[in-house]
């Protein structure tokens, strides 16, 4: 199997999926504030649906050699959420996506993890010319993350029956912003 690498940022660890990620992942997907923008019906996911969602994340790595990382907080080793590449069949582009437990919102963790995941994706996938982020029009918090990553809003699209905007950033712009990042 193609194992996810471990990535380290200042405050976070990004790593592959394990069976014991299920409880905190299911707890996250049962949060109404998370489900509002991350489940197909906008309702909290039950345990069976969360297991399948987690299996798809692990299977994305196994099939495609890239995928969402589990994000852990270094200090506490707590499960923070999942961030990283997402490119299932029929997706409008190569996405860098993020979804964190509300307990960890407002700390800059999504941006910190998405930067590491994007750096990894551009370094390991030479054919990648840009990444996108598919964001619900009402999801202000995620739009802020996209702005901090240097993504710009593009076309509107209907996704899971809901209005989304495709945010984009080119490889060149990502690289330019990376060199100017505060360390």
């Amino acid at each position: 199997m193609i194992a996810a690498p471990n990535l380290e940022t200042q405050r976070l660890i990004l790593r592959g999926w394990r069976e014991d990620d299920f409880e905190p992942f299911a707890a996250m997907m049962a949060e109404p504030a998370v489900a509002r923008f991350l489940t197909a019906d906008q309702r909290p996911a039950d345990r069976a649906a969360s297991w399948r969602a987690m299996a798809v994340f692990a299977g994305h790595w196994a099939l495609l050699g890239c995928g969402m990382f589990v994000v852990e907080e270094k200090a506490s080793r707590a499960f923070v959420g999942r961030v990283g590449p997402w490119r299932p069949e029929g997706w409008p582009g190569f996405e860098i996506g993020w979804g964190l437990h509300p307990q960890f919102w407002g700390k800059g963790y999504a941006t910190e993890a998405a930067r590491a995941a994007g750096d990894w994706a551009f370094a390991h996938l030479p054919e990648l010319t840009e990444v996108i982020s598919l964001i619900h029009v009402d999801n202000r918090a995620s739009q802020r993350v996209a702005e901090k990553l240097g993504e710009t809003p593009g076309e509107r699209t209907l996704h899971a029956g809901m209005p989304h905007v495709i945010w984009r950033i080119s490889r060149a712009r990502w690289a330019a912003l990376k060199t100017n990042r505060p360390s």
Partner: peptide, 17 residues
């Protein structure tokens, strides 16, 4: 096709997990 890919990824993920 999207649902079929997810089904296949669920199978692959079952193996991985």
């Amino acid at each position: 096709p999207h649902a079929s890919w997810r089904a296949m990824a669920t199978v692959a993920g079952s193996w991985a997990l």
